[in-house]
Design a protein around this nucleic acid. Structure first.
Lengths: 282, 282
DNA sequence: CGGGTCTTTGATTAGGTTCAATAAGAGTGG
DNA sequence: CCACTCTTATTGAACCTAATCAAAGACCCG
């Protein structure tokens, strides 16, 4: 059987359509099992523990563009690691509005938000054909108990996610539209470089709407900002194709009026507080 | 010795000033050690594991208003659990601007962001006199290995934090200023209820500026919004004192133009996608 | 009491949304 | 293979929310 410990909600989605030979062939090209060592490599975990048990393998599952990997409220039991492909994770509010939370790609882990309530708190959708490694949570924790380095790696990966979310909050709370889009492009460029693709020329896998949702902007603002960057010469844009021309400029781009007054005020206060703490503490 | 495994950066801050009898007395009132069982109770972890070793105690540390518990970049080795008091965690950008990330209070865990890089990614500051339980990370992971329920609880708490951050991102990305402030008041009210305080009448422990930073707004907007809620009769405001008059209204308050067009469009798309997946998957 | 911080409120501005119209692709079926 | 449709992207114009600038009052602490 190809599809196993996948909850019934979308188990049909996990089974590829047999109607097309082409799709079926693509399906078979995918690697179906990975060892723990391979899993750690994908996740960029430094110390792959030596495991004697060679039978310890992790199953892969393929998803096609548009398919849902898991939905909100679906019982949680497995984490997902992206082996190839692009996805989005989204929250759905009571009006059916999507809020994009992340764009997982190769080496990313998702599904972690399901641990707490035993149900996924978000929905994951494939933006391209994807090859995912299934990591049953029970299996992972059991492994972690036997291999402290692996256990620490798990905490580390979760902590990294938390830091990433913090950076996201900070960005949404403080940066202008231009700065958000600029940073988004920079982070995409870096991710593509990590994955061995070109960091200077790449295709967006997501729509303007999805980018806007991710950045807390409207699709029009995203489109306009990209056009503006194009005119200034920071990038080239042609639909989904993006060429990075001035990475440093994108990296350092802030909100145009740098709100110097607040910065000064805040800095002054911090200096003062430090003095105060030292004074009372000494 | 009172202060132990606290990094040198602010170890002086952890040692209370002996200059004032009053402060010293307050210091002694604090409980200095907690058992694992007590720790689990504070954290609201359902299954406190039975631990034979009664010597396993967790030290407390007191901080006074304005003192820093840890700073960004400081070597990480301990997590903090709030036993009493109020704090804020902040990110500092390159201009010295603060971005408030959370307001930890009784039962909250913080410091988790330090696990990944072995250095704290944020700064924690006491907004009132605080009593914190020190939880050395090494000690905790070792304990977790011996007690699977505890280990699971750790993952669960970290997952909960992640979900909280996700909700924060969603709020910053999608809600109007009024809705953000309303939700903030609701969550505060609920937290106070949890802690046994009044959910209808309480004092804010943070400034308008800190609230604004947390919500991605300016202090003026926060102030104006509170005043507006006051005029409508949803709350009463007098400086830091807040009286909740219509919790349900605050809870359901959204952005005034509900952006119905987008919701419809999005809902329609979702329905369509579901059909498509079912069609190809079946 | 006085200096500093915090809060409130007003007036003005600007950045981003909303509404709208057009164009460009991608997929579908005759 | 082309016409048709649906989704996605671009661009413009008007509007509006929240930021910015400014000033005055309230509170706190030494």
């Amino acid at each position: 059987m190809l599809s196993t410990q996948i909850s019934e909600t979308r188990s049909d989605a996990a089974i590829p359509s047999a109607s097309s030979i082409g799709e079926s062939a693509w399906q078979r090209q995918g690697k179906l099992w990975s060892s723990l060592k391979e899993l750690c490599e994908v996740l960029r975990i430094p110390n792959p523990p030596v495991v004697n048990d060679e039978e310890l393998m992790f199953q892969h599952v393929q998803f096609k563009t548009g398919q849902r990997v898991h939905t909100i409220g679906q019982p949680f039991d497995t984490l997902y690691v992206v082996h190839s492909g692009f996805l989005k994770t989204v929250l759905i509010d009571e009006f059916g509005n999507e809020q994009v939370l992340s764009f997982p790609m190769k080496g990313d882990l998702f599904g972690v938000d399901g641990i707490h309530s035993k149900r996924y708190a978000s929905e994951a959708v494939a933006l391209s054909n994807c090859d995912l490694i299934l990591v049953p949570f029970k299996k992972l924790t059991a492994l972690g108990r036997a291999h402290p380095e692996l256990e620490h790696a798990m905490y580390s990966v979760m902590s990294r996610e938390l830091v990433r979310e913090q950076a996201m909050v900070s960005m949404l709370g403080a940066l202008s539209a231009e700065a958000r889009v600029a940073r988004f492009l920079v982070s995409l460029s870096e991710r593509f470089a990590d994955m061995g693709y070109s960091s200077k020329l790449f295709n967006l896998r997501m729509t303007r709407h999805e980018i806007g949702s991710y950045l807390g902007l409207t699709l029009e603002t995203v489109s306009r900002t990209l056009s503006a960057f194009n005119e200034i010469g920071l990038i080239t844009v042609d639909q989904r194709s993006i060429g990075i021309k001035d990475l440093d400029a994108l990296r350092t781009l802030r909100r145009l009026p740098p709100s110097s007054s607040r910065a000064k005020q805040s800095a002054a206060k911090r200096a003062k507080q430090a003095q105060l703490v030292n004074a009372t503490g000494a």
